[in-house]
């Protein structure tokens, strides 16, 4: 199953199970989604549950919020993750804060799906990795799956969660394939996964960068460097237990982040490692990120911006030097 098909499969699994799960967004119904990630859902569940909206991001998130406050479990698609900036008030001021400001009177069991990240030559306004923006807002959970199985399992967990979950689908991964367990599949939010065990260093990655880290680890294996690759899968909750166990084993840490450098998630992870795992470290934590630039469109420029397997391997090689 492709990552793209896994989105529809995960939604179908939850919509079939729970009639309070509804889907809204631009082009999610008749068109099957601009990324074709919701193909077939309108036919399966009908126009009452799969609703096309105008290009009105505030209206979309507002509708999801009001519905979530009053008994539904809506899933809203925002299309390109960059568009969250158009409705940042609804996401960061309203959805995120409602439970806290009302002292728990309001619950918001909603999911916002985004097509996140670069690699498709769309230029700076359709390619950003916005996970660090969202991670910075108290009250939001932030999930980034990297495999089709994780898409299904984490999407199911997100739908069932009683908090607002920002579900970032990596656009570059939509065509990739992987095994998905038979039958109902539900994963757990806030659990990292060791994608590759190793002893020489911990390579902590997220989303598309998990694949790049694995590819880098394969290259380095041939040189006798044994990398442990951790796929965080979720930034909030953040599984530092898995990270700390790995650091204790390897003593060397690299983060691989698609986001621009400043305040990327790796900065928080590195900060916690420095505070809590300092005496396990044999060297400074090193962050491998996109430089602090808006993402350019041209192949050669975008490829130079986003960490590649080669760049990750080179940074690790140099760091372990």
């Amino acid at each position: 199953m492709t990552y793209r098909e896994a989105v529809a499969a995960g939604l179908a699994q939850e919509m079939a199970r729970d009639p309070s799960v509804v889907l809204i967004g631009e082009d999610v119904g008749a068109a099957g989604g601009v990324f074709k990630a919701t193909a077939g859902l309108l036919e399966k569940f009908g126009a009452r549950r799969v609703k096309d909206t105008p290009i009105s991001e505030q209206a979309i998130i507002g509708a999801a919020m009001g519905a979530a406050m009053t008994g539904l479990r809506p899933v809203a698609e925002l299309m390109f993750a960059d568009f969250v900036s158009v409705c940042h008030d609804l996401v960061a001021n309203q959805v995120a804060k409602a439970r806290y400001m009302t002292n728990g009177q309001v619950s918001l069991p909603l999911v916002v799906r985004f097509g996140n990240g670069g690699g498709l030559r769309f230029g700076a306004q359709h390619s950003q990795s916005v996970e660090s923006w969202l991670m910075a807002v108290p009250g939001l959970k932030v999930v980034v799956p990297s495999t089709p199985a994780d898409v299904v399992g984490l999407l199911a967990a997100a739908v069932r969660d009683d908090d607002p979950v920002m579900f970032l689908e990596e656009k570059a991964l939509y065509p990739t394939s992987g095994e998905v367990p038979e039958g109902e599949h539900v994963d757990e939010l806030g659990t990292a996964r060791v994608r590759r065990p190793g002893k020489d260093c911990s390579v902590i990655a997220l989303g598309t960068m998990a694949d790049r880290a694995l590819a880098a680890a394969e290259q380095l294996q041939a040189e006798g460097i044994d990398c442990e690759v951790i796929d965080l899968r979720s930034l909030v909750p953040l599984d530092m237990t898995t990270v700390a166990a790995s650091v204790a084993k390897t003593g060397r840490v690299f983060t691989v982040e698609e986001n621009p450098r400043l305040c990327g998630w790796g900065a928080e992870v590195a900060s916690i490692i420095c505070e809590e795992c300092f005496y396990d470290l044999d060297a400074p934590v090193r962050r491998i990120t996109t430089p602090h630039v808006p993402l350019p469109a041209a192949d050669s420029l975008e490829d130079a911006a986003i960490p590649s397997a080669e760049r990750v391997a080179a940074a690790i090689r140099e760091g372990l030097g």
């Binding site: 009105s56 505030q58 209206a59 979309i60 998130i61 507002g62 509708a63 999801a64 919020m65 009001g66 519905a67 979530a68 406050m69 009053t70 008994g71 539904l72 809506p74 008030d89 609804l90 001021n93 309203q94 409602a98 400001m101 009302t102 309001v106």
Partner: peptide, 20 residues
């Protein structure tokens, strides 16, 4: 369902309750 301090923000949210 709340008092909203960002001007206009709750109009889309009221839609959600109505839709629900």
């Amino acid at each position: 369902m709340g008092s909203y301090a960002i001007v206009g923000a709750h109009l889309p949210i009221a839609n959600g309750a109505a839709w629900s």
